[in-house]
Design a binder for these strands. Structure first.
Length: 962
DNA sequence: CGTAGGCATGGGT
DNA sequence: GACCCATGCCTAC
C-alpha cells in the first residue's frame, strides 16, 4: 500500500519515510500501530479513512484543545496517537485524552490492538461488535458505523437510539434485524442479517491484509459482506473504472440508502447480488473484481446449510467452455488459487476436498502447470461435480470457505436464462419462426459476437423493424463464421443467451469474448448437424451482394461484405419439361406459391412479395396446387428430410434425388411422371444433375440430350455461360494487374506452394492457380482439353489428370474460350468427360475419408453458377445450400482461381471474413506430398472438430460414378 | 483411433 | 510489455 510520506511523531526522531510498509514504517506486530522505521516509535493507528478527507465527518477534535484533527488516515499529518493505556494523544496539543472523549469519526481509527473498547455507560450510543476471534465485544459508536458504511455510500443510518439494543448484537428497525459484525461472525442464517463488517479484527495479519488491499482506500475497509455492490451501484462510472484500474478512489458519501435507507428498507438485502471484496488470503489484493464473489446472502445461507458456521466467500469464476467441458479441468484464477487454496510447490499439487452446495464432498486435484515463468492453476476432475450441478459454460462457480474449519465449499450460480433450448426452439430458429426469433433477439446480448447474427436475424425476422445495419456484423472483423458458431454453440449447448442485464463491456469480457472460443466437441457437433443444417438451408446470399474472391488452400471463398440473410424454407420441384420451380408458403394465407428456382426468398414472405407471378401476388389468388398435391409434396418432403437425417448425411447419392423426384411426381401428378422419372433416373446416374439446382450443369437435360444451343441463344444455360465467361475475364484482368504489382511476392508464394505440391503435381501447376492465369504460365486446362477435343468447363487448375498432358507446355494464346466451346462442354455428359479424360471413377483414387470428397466437377459447376447468379438457392435437402461441402477447409492463402459462392458457417481458425468456399478442384489428382502430411493432418483435425458441425452433405450425391 | 495429460500459444487485459 | 488464462496442440497411452 502506498502511504503518504510523513514524519515520525517523535520529535527527536523526525524521520520522514515514504510511508510504505517496510520502508520506514512497519506494522507493529501484535498491534495496528505503525512503527517508525527509524526510532521504532509507535505512530498512528492505521487508517485508511483518507476517503473522508476534507469532509466534516473525517475530522475529529481533541477533547482537550478542541482542535479538529484529522481522522488519522495515513495521508494526514494531524494525528491522534493512540496510547498504550488506551488513551489518545492529540498531536496538536500533546495532551492525552481518554479514548472516548475524542469524537472519532472513523471507526478504523479507534481500533485498538487487542483491546476491546469498554462501552459501559454508553450503550445507547454504541453498536455492539463481537470479535469472533477472541470473543470480545466492541461497542462501536453509531456515527462511526455510519462512517464505515458511509464508505458504501450510505448516509442514512437508522437511529439506533430509538431502536437499538446495545446489550445485544442485534437491533431492529422496521421489523428488520440488523447485526453489526465482522465477516467472521457473519451468520447468513440470520434473517435480515446485514453482516456489516467493520474491519474490527484483532488479527494483525488480517488487518494488515486489509491495509494492504490493493492500495485502494475504499477497499481497505474489509467490509466483505456489505458490499462493493453498493459502492459500485452508487459510484459514478468513472469512479468505477478507477476502481477497476486499481486506482485510488475517494468515494463520495452518497446519499444512497441502498442498504439501509428508507427507500429500500423494505427490501431485503439478502438477495442482493453484491460483489464482495475478497476475504483475507495471500495476495488477495490482486484479485480482479471479476473474481469477487457475488454471492448473495441467500446463497451463503444455502451453502451453510443452516449451520452456524461462518461462510467466507472467496471468489467466483464464470465457467469457460473448457472449464465446463469434458476435460474436467477448471482453470483457477492464479491470484485466487494462490490466495485461498493451499500453497503448492509441485506441479502435481495436492488433492483438495471441496464440498458442493448440496453438502457432497468432492476431491479435486489442485495443481498447476508451469506457464511462462508463471503458473496456471487448475482443479482437475471437476467434471462429475460440474455435471452434478448441471453447470455449463457461462454459469458461475463460487468458492467459499467455512470458518473456522477452513473447509472449502463450492457453490454455483446458473447464468441468467440458462435454460437449455429445446429442439423445437432450435428448430424455430432454423425455421425463422418470427416470434421465437424476436424472443431470441431480445435475449441476445448486443455484443460483438452476437450482434451480427442478431442483426441478421432481426433483419430477417422483422425486416421492417430492423434499425441496425446488418453489415455491422463484420465491422470488427468478426466473421459470419464466428457469429454463427457462437449462436449455434450456445443454442446447442443450451447456453444462456445472456439478457441485456450486464453492461455490454462486461458481458463481452465474461462471455462473448470468451465464447468466441466456445468449443463444440463432436457430440455437440452431431447434435448441431441436425439443427444447423436446417439453419443453413435458410441462408441466402445477401441480395445484390458482390463477393470478392479469396483463395485459401485451393479453396475459393467468396467474401461478402454483407452477412447472409435467413431465407424461408422452400421446396423445389422439377417440371416435366425439365424446368425447376420453387414453392414457398405465404406467411399470411399459407398458400403455396410457385417461384422461379433461383428466387431468393426471405424468411418472411407473403403473396404480395410474389413479383414473379402477378396473378398470384395476392393472398386472394387461388392455390396453384390442389390440397392433395400440397399434402403429398409436404409429406414426401418431410420423408425425404427424415431419411436424409437418419442416414447421417452420408446417404447414398441416389436417395435425395430419387425422393425428390418422387416429391416432384407427387406434385406434378401422373401426367408428369414419365418425364420426371426420367429426370430422376438420370439424376441418379449422374450426381451432377440434381433437381432443384440451377447450376450450369444441372439446369441442362442430363446426358447431353437436350437441344443444341445457338450462339444467340438466350436460354438460362447460355446466359449463365456468358456471365461466367464475363466473370472469368474480369477476374483475369483484375488478377493480372494485381500480379504485376506483386510479382515478387507471388513468386515467393508460388514457390512455397510448389514446394507443397510439386512432388505429385503432374502439371507442376501451382496450387490454386487460375486456369486463365495458368495459361500464361504455360498451363491452360482449357487449351489442354481443347487439344483433345474437349473443354473442361469445370476446369480446375490442379487437374493434372492422369494423362499428364497438362504439363508446362507453352500454350499461350489459347486463353480465350469461345461461347460455343463452353456450351459444347457444358452439354457433355459427365461420363463422357470422364472417359475422355481417362477416368473411370471419381472415387477410385480418392480416399474415403478424404477431406474433399465433395469436390466433384458438378459441385464446382454448381458453385460457379452460384457466383454467376450472385445468389444461392436452397433446396429442402440442402444440396445446393451455399456453404462448404464436407471436408473443405481454408488453409493458407494461395492464388485466386475462379470462384464459387457458398457461405461458411464453420469456425475458422482465423477470423477471416470468408464466407465462401469452394470444393477442392478435382481431388482425384490432388497431390499428396509426404511433407505436407502434418499440415493435412491438422486440416483433418480441424475438419473433424469444426466443420463436422456443418459438414452435412450438401452436395448429396457422393462422387460415385460407375 | 480416441482420450488424457501437459505444455504452448496467443488474445485480452 | 508483462501477465493471465482459454484453449490449442502435441504426445503418450
Amino acid at each position: 500500500m502506498g502511504l503518504a510520506s510523513r514524519s515520525c511523531v517523535n520529535a527527536e526522531c523526525g524521520a520522514t519515510a515514504a510511508g510504505e510498509w517496510g520502508k520506514g514504517w512497519a506494522l507493529r506486530s501484535g498491534g495496528f500501530a505503525n512503527l517508525c522505521g527509524n526510532c521504532g516509535m509507535a505512530y498512528e493507528k492505521f487508517i485508511f479513512c483518507d476517503l473522508f478527507h476534507g469532509k466534516e465527518s473525517g475530522w475529529r477534535e481533541c477533547s482537550s484543545c478542541g482542535k479538529r484533527l484529522h481522522c488519522g488516515c495515513v495521508a494526514s499529518r494531524s494525528l491522534i496517537v493512540l496510547l498504550d493505556n488506551g488513551g489518545v494523544q492529540c498531536v496538536n496539543c500533546a495532551k492525552n485524552s481518554d479514548l472516548n472523549s475524542v469524537r472519532f469519526s472513523c471507526i478504523l481509527c479507534m481500533i485498538h490492538a487487542g483491546r476491546s473498547i469498554d462501552c459501559k455507560g454508553q450503550s445507547s450510543m454504541l453498536l455492539v461488535h463481537r470479535d469472533n476471534l477472541n470473543g470480545s465485544y466492541k461497542h462501536i459508536k453509531r456515527e462511526e458505523v455510519m462512517l464505515s458504511v458511509g464508505d458504501l455510500g450510505i448516509t442514512s443510518f437508522p437511529d439506533i437510539n430509538q431502536v437499538g439494543n446495545s446489550s445485544s448484537q442485534t437491533w431492529r428497525r422496521d421489523d428488520r434485524k440488523y447485526v453489526v459484525t465482522d465477516k467472521r461472525s457473519f451468520n447468513p442464517t440470520n434473517p435480515g442479517c446485514l453482516g456489516i463488517s467493520l474491519g474490527t479484527s484483532s488479527n494483525p495479519a488480517h488487518m494488515a491484509d486489509a491495509c494492504d488491499y490493493g492500495g485502494n482506500s475504499h477497499l481497505s475497509l474489509p467490509m466483505s459482506n456489505l458490499g462493493a455492490e453498493g459502492r459500485e451501484q452508487t459510484r459514478s462510472q468513472s469512479a468505477l473504472q478507477q476502481v477497476q484500474k486499481g486506482q485510488q478512489v475517494h468515494p463520495k458519501p452518497l446519499k444512497s440508502s441502498l442498504l439501509f435507507g428508507s427507500e429500500t428498507s423494505k427490501e431485503s438485502i439478502s438477495n442482493m447480488r453484491v460483489a464482495r471484496p475478497p476475504g483475507e488470503g495471500r495476495g488477495r489484493n490482486h484479485l480482479l473484481p471479476r473474481y469477487w464473489p457475488r454471492i448473495t446472502d441467500q446463497e451463503l445461507k444455502q451453502i451453510s446449510g443452516g449451520s452456524n458456521s461462518t461462510i467466507v466467500p472467496l471468489f467466483e469464476k464464470v465457467l469457460s467452455a473448457s472449464d465446463a467441458g469434458r476435460i474436467g479441468r477448471l482453470v483457477l484464477p492464479k491470484a485466487c488459487a494462490e490466495a485461498y487454496f493451499p500453497p503448492i510447490s509441485q506441479p502435481e499439487g495436492l488433492p483438495l476436498r471441496i464440498q458442493d452446495s448440496k453438502g457432497k464432498d468432492w476431491i479435486f486435484q489442485f495443481r498447476f502447470w508451469p506457464n511462462n515463468n508463471s503458473r496456471m492453476y487448475v482443479l482437475e476432475g471437476v467434471t462429475p461435480c460440474i455435471q452434478s450441478m448441471q453447470l455449463q459454460a457461462g454459469d458461475t462457480v463460487t468458492f467459499s470457505r467455512i470458518d473456522p474449519e477452513g473447509k472449502l465449499v463450492m457453490g454455483f450460480r446458473k447464468a441468467i436464462n440458462s435454460v437449455p433450448l429445446q429442439d423445437s426452439q432450435i428448430s424455430a430458429i432454423a425455421n425463422g419462426n418470427e416470434s421465437f426469433l424476436s424472443g431470441v433477439i431480445e435475449s441476445l446480448p448486443i455484443v460483438s459476437c452476437y450482434s451480427g447474427l442478431l442483426q441478421s436475424l432481426e433483419a430477417t425476422a422483422c425486416p421492417q423493424s430492423s434499425g441496425l445495419p446488418a453489415h455491422r456484423i463484420l465491422a470488427d472483423g468478426v466473421s459470419i463464421c464466428l457469429v454463427s458458431d457462437n449462436l449455434a454453440s450456445r443454442l446447442i449447448q443450451g447456453l444462456p443467451l445472456q439478457p441485456l442485464l450486464v453492461p455490454e463491456k462486461k458481458r463481452s469480457r465474461n462471455i462473448s469474448s470468451k465464447s468466441k472460443r466456445l468449443h463444440i466437441d463432436s457430440e455437440d457437433a452431431l447434435e448441431l448437424k441436425l439443427t444447423w443444417e436446417d439453419a443453413q438451408d435458410l441462408l441466402r446470399a445477401p441480395p445484390n451482394a458482390i463477393p470478392s474472391i479469396v483463395v485459401i488452400e485451393d479453396h475459393e471463398f467468396e467474401e461478402y461484405e454483407e452477412p447472409p440473410v435467413l431465407g424461408k424454407k422452400t421446396i423445389f420441384t422439377i417440371r416435366a419439361s425439365g424446368g425447376n420451380d420453387q414453392w414457398v408458403q405465404c406467411d399470411h394465407c399459407h398458400k403455396w406459391r410457385r417461384l422461379p428456382a433461383d428466387a431468393i426468398v426471405l424468411s418472411k414472405w407473403v403473396c404480395t412479395d410474389n413479383a414473379w407471378d402477378p396473378k398470384r401476388s395476392s393472398c386472394s389468388a387461388p392455390d396453384e396446387m390442389g390440397e392433395k398435391e400440397i399434402q403429398n409434396l409436404l409429406q414426401l418432403n418431410a420423408e425425404l428430410k427424415k431419411r436424409k437425417l437418419s442416414t447421417g448425411y452420408t446417404q447414398p447419392a441416389e436417395e435425395p434425388a430419387g425422393l425428390e423426384a418422387l416429391a416432384t411426381l407427387a406434385v406434378l401428378g401422373n401426367e408428369a411422371t414419365q418425364a420426371a422419372l426420367s429426370v430422376a433416373t438420370a439424376t441418379t446416374k449422374h450426381p451432377r444433375h440434381r433437381p432443384g439446382c440451377s447450376c450450369i450443369v444441372c439446369i441442362q437435360p442430363p446426358s447431353g440430350k437436350g437441344p443444341k444451343h445457338k450462339p444467340t441463344c438466350t436460354c438460362n444455360v447460355c446466359m449463365t455461360v456468358r456471365r461466367r465467361f464475363k466473370t472469368l475475364m474480369m477476374r483475369k484482368k483484375k488478377r493480372q494487374s494485381e500480379q504485376e504489382a506483386g510479382a515478387h511476392k507471388k513468386l515467393l508464394s508460388d514457390k512455397d506452394d510448389a514446394e507443397l505440391g510439386s512432388s505429385s503435381k503432374a502439371g507442376g501447376l501451382p496450387s490454386g492457380t487460375d486456369p486463365l492465369e495458368a495459361s500464361e504460365s504455360g498451363y491452360n486446362p482449357v487449351a489442354a482439353d481443347m487439344g483433345t477435343g474437349q473443354i473442361d468447363l469445370n476446369c480446375r487448375p490442379e487437374r493434372g489428370d492422369g494423362g499428364g498432358d497438362s504439363g508446362g507446355g507453352g500454350r499461350a494464346g489459347q486463353t480465350h474460350m469461345s461461347m460455343m466451346t463452353l456450351l459444347k462442354v457444358a452439354n457433355l455428359p459427365l461420363e463422357m468427360y470422364l472417359k475422355q479424360n481417362g477416368l473411370t471413377s471419381l472415387v477410385s483414387e480418392q480416399p474415403a475419408s478424404s477431406s474433399s470428397h465433395a469436390a466433384v466437377p458438378w459441385a464446382v459447376a454448381e458453385s460457379e453458377e452460384g457466383t454467376a447468379e450472385g445468389g444461392h438457392q436452397a433446396t429442402t435437402t440442402g444440396r445446393t445450400a451455399p456453404w462448404p461441402t464436407k471436408g473443405t477447409l481454408p488453409w493458407g492463402p494461395s492464388p485466386d482461381p475462379p470462384s464459387s459462392s457458398s457461405f461458411i458457417l464453420g469456425r475458422l481458425q482465423t477470423p477471416l471474413r470468408l464466407q465462401d468456399q469452394q470444393p477442392s478442384p478435382n481431388p482425384i489428382h490432388r497431390p499428396k506430398p509426404v511433407h505436407i502430411d502434418a499440415r493435412k493432418k491438422r486440416i483433418d483435425r480441424l475438419l473433424s472438430k469444426r466443420f463436422a458441425l456443418f459438414s452435412f452433405t450438401i452436395a448429396s450425391p457422393s462422387p460415385s460414378i460407375h
